[in-house]
Computed example of a mutant assay.
Amino acid sequence: MRTEAAWPLDDRGVAYGDGLFETILLRGGRPLLWDEHLARLARGCHRLGIPMPEEHDLAVPLAEAGNGLEVLKLTLTRGSGGRGYRPPFSCAPRLRWQLAAFVPAETRWQQGVRVRHCRLRLGLQPVLAGLKHLNRLENVLARAEWDDEDIAEGLLCDSDGRLVEATAMNLFWRRAGRLETPRLDRCGVAGALRAALMERMEIHEVDIHPDEFEAAEAVWLGNSVQGVWPVVRLDDGAGIERRRWLLSPLHRTFQAEAHRLLDYPAP
């Protein structure tokens, strides 16, 4: 693992989560879905009032990448300064990066995954909705709800009971013959792979509750690092099975479209 510099203790990202991050798949130093990642970073910078990094600064870690498959984590904070929660009038953003070798979970591509509902509910905050900001404590607490290695992910609802996402992946399904994904205008992270797929496919954003979701014909989880995992079993928060799905060509068609964007094989 290669990391660029440490964080000072007075950095506002460390102290308050005042910043953003992107996690990007690199193949031989080439970033996948680079435009989508930069677009989300730019949206976050605009909403938080943090200047967008210069192109040459963003290119530095790419020059350090190796020839294999790696994950680049870019972290941007407002920097240091200000008084308490009050941000500085003029900020000096701090950009840090980390590179690590990566091996995708191919078994999960091929065999599908078991998921569960989480008890934790996401708070509603439209100003931050869709962004990959540094305040991820809700996701940490949700992921701490289980330690069963057979469960790959947990599904999160918001405080009004609407399905939003998984702890680290976006959620997609086919219901009544059409592709759908949760609307993310109140909370949740709008992933780079989600954005790319929505540009290329007819995917409808919907408000949905878990009982409606269980009527889906096929379900997938996806992000820009892991690719797409078909869901084959859903449990409730107590580990009791709610629904099973058999793998079918329907699962593989959606998966193949996503994997083309990441140069992953189609199982």
Rank of each mutant, 00 (worst) to 15 (best):
5 A>R: 15
5 A>C: 08
13 G>H: 08
13 G>L: 09
14 V>S: 03
15 A>V: 15
17 G>N: 08
17 G>K: 11
19 G>D: 01
21 F>T: 07
23 T>D: 00
23 T>Q: 00
23 T>V: 03
26 L>V: 04
29 G>C: 01
38 L>Y: 02
40 R>H: 03
41 L>M: 15
44 G>L: 04
44 G>I: 09
48 L>N: 12
51 P>R: 09
54 E>H: 14
55 E>H: 12
57 D>E: 15
58 L>G: 11
58 L>M: 12
59 A>S: 13
61 P>G: 10
62 L>G: 07
63 A>G: 13
63 A>C: 05
64 E>A: 14
64 E>Y: 03
65 A>W: 11
67 N>A: 14
67 N>F: 03
68 G>A: 05
69 L>I: 09
71 V>H: 02
73 K>Y: 04
74 L>T: 08
77 T>D: 08
79 G>I: 06
80 S>N: 12
82 G>F: 09
86 R>I: 14
86 R>L: 15
93 P>V: 10
95 L>S: 10
97 W>Q: 05
100 A>Q: 15
101 A>Q: 04
106 E>R: 14
106 E>N: 02
107 T>Q: 14
109 W>I: 03
112 G>W: 08
112 G>H: 10
123 G>N: 09
124 L>P: 02
125 Q>F: 10
131 L>V: 00
132 K>A: 07
133 H>E: 02
134 L>H: 02
137 L>A: 09
140 V>K: 00
143 R>Q: 15
146 W>T: 12
148 D>L: 07
149 E>C: 06
152 A>F: 12
152 A>N: 06
153 E>M: 02
155 L>W: 07
160 D>T: 06
160 D>E: 15
161 G>F: 04
162 R>L: 13
164 V>S: 02
167 T>L: 00
168 A>I: 12
168 A>L: 14
169 M>T: 09
172 F>I: 01
174 R>V: 11
174 R>E: 12
177 G>E: 02
177 G>K: 04
178 R>I: 12
184 L>P: 08
186 R>L: 08
187 C>E: 04
188 G>D: 10
192 A>W: 01
194 R>S: 00
194 R>C: 02
195 A>T: 15
196 A>Y: 10
199 E>V: 06
200 R>P: 01
201 M>E: 15
202 E>R: 15
203 I>K: 09
204 H>G: 02
204 H>Q: 14
206 V>D: 08
210 P>I: 06
213 F>H: 07
214 E>T: 07
216 A>Y: 05
216 A>L: 04
219 V>K: 00
221 L>M: 11
223 N>L: 00
224 S>P: 00
224 S>L: 00
227 G>I: 03
227 G>T: 06
229 W>Y: 14
230 P>T: 11
231 V>G: 06
232 V>R: 12
235 D>R: 05
235 D>Q: 08
236 D>G: 00
237 G>L: 02
237 G>T: 03
238 A>R: 13
243 R>E: 01
243 R>C: 01
244 R>D: 03
246 L>T: 14
248 S>V: 01
249 P>R: 05
251 H>Q: 11
256 A>E: 12
258 A>P: 06
262 L>Q: 11
263 D>A: 15
263 D>T: 10
264 Y>F: 15
264 Y>T: 11
265 P>E: 00
